Simulated assay, not measured.
Amino acid sequence: MSSNEHSPLVSSALELFGNLIKVRRLERGITQKDLARSLNISAQTVRCIETGQGNVKVGTVFEVANHLGINLFELDEVSVHEMNEELRDQLTVLPKKLRQPSKSVCVDF
């Protein structure tokens, strides 16, 4: 699989995220260019997100979604922080060897 090809599941998720973002942007009357400008990203990046094409960092997708008030996992900011606190607590009791990933993980889709 080349870097621009995704599994069917990932392709479907990218399409879903892109559609959610596009609908919310259009509902708010925001152009791709204006959305890009407000987030300091390129209009091309917004197009890639909305079409589910290209390699856009997952963090960028979350930033765009958050900016438009979309909770991709139906979690609000408080829930995310609470879950992170719980996970941090769990990580402190794990042996150090288990806390370090054996391979680097790419955050891009």
Rank of each mutant, 00 (worst) to 15 (best):
S2P: 15
S2G: 14
S3W: 14
S3I: 15
H6R: 12
H6V: 12
H6F: 15
S7E: 04
P8M: 08
V10P: 06
V10G: 07
V10W: 04
S11W: 06
S12C: 09
S12Q: 12
S12N: 15
S12A: 15
S12Y: 13
A13I: 13
L14V: 03
E15S: 12
E15M: 11
F17V: 06
G18R: 03
G18P: 02
G18V: 00
G18N: 01
N19I: 10
N19L: 10
V23D: 09
R24Q: 05
R25M: 01
L26F: 08
L26K: 09
E27K: 05
R28M: 11
G29P: 01
G29S: 00
G29F: 04
I30E: 04
I30N: 01
I30F: 01
T31A: 02
K33I: 11
K33A: 15
D34E: 10
D34I: 05
A36V: 01
R37C: 09
N40V: 06
N40W: 04
S42C: 03
S42I: 05
R47M: 12
R47P: 08
C48D: 15
I49N: 02
I49P: 03
I49D: 03
E50Y: 05
E50A: 03
E50Q: 02
E50C: 00
Q53D: 08
G54S: 00
G54E: 02
V56Y: 00
V56L: 02
K57G: 07
K57L: 08
K57S: 10
V58I: 11
V58F: 13
V58P: 07
G59C: 06
G59K: 05
G59I: 04
T60L: 04
T60G: 03
T60C: 01
F62E: 10
F62C: 11
E63C: 10
E63V: 10
E63S: 14
E63H: 12
A65L: 00
A65E: 02
N66I: 07
N66Q: 11
N66K: 13
H67C: 06
L68V: 04
L68F: 04
G69S: 02
G69C: 02
I70F: 03
I70G: 01
I70E: 02
L72P: 00
L72I: 01
L72K: 01
F73M: 08
L75P: 02
D76H: 05
V78N: 15
S79T: 05
S79H: 04
V80T: 06
H81I: 12
E82D: 12
E82Q: 10
E82S: 09
N84H: 13
N84I: 11
E86Y: 08
E86N: 08
L87M: 06
L87N: 09
L87V: 10
L87K: 06
R88W: 14
D89M: 11
Q90K: 15
Q90I: 12
T92Y: 10
V93Y: 13
L94Y: 00
P95R: 01
P95D: 06
P95E: 07
K96G: 11
K96H: 12
K96A: 15
K97L: 12
L98G: 06
L98N: 11
R99P: 03
Q100L: 08
P101G: 08
P101E: 05
P101V: 03
P101Y: 05
S102T: 14
S102Y: 11
K103P: 11
S104H: 14
V105E: 14
V105N: 13
D108G: 14
F109G: 13
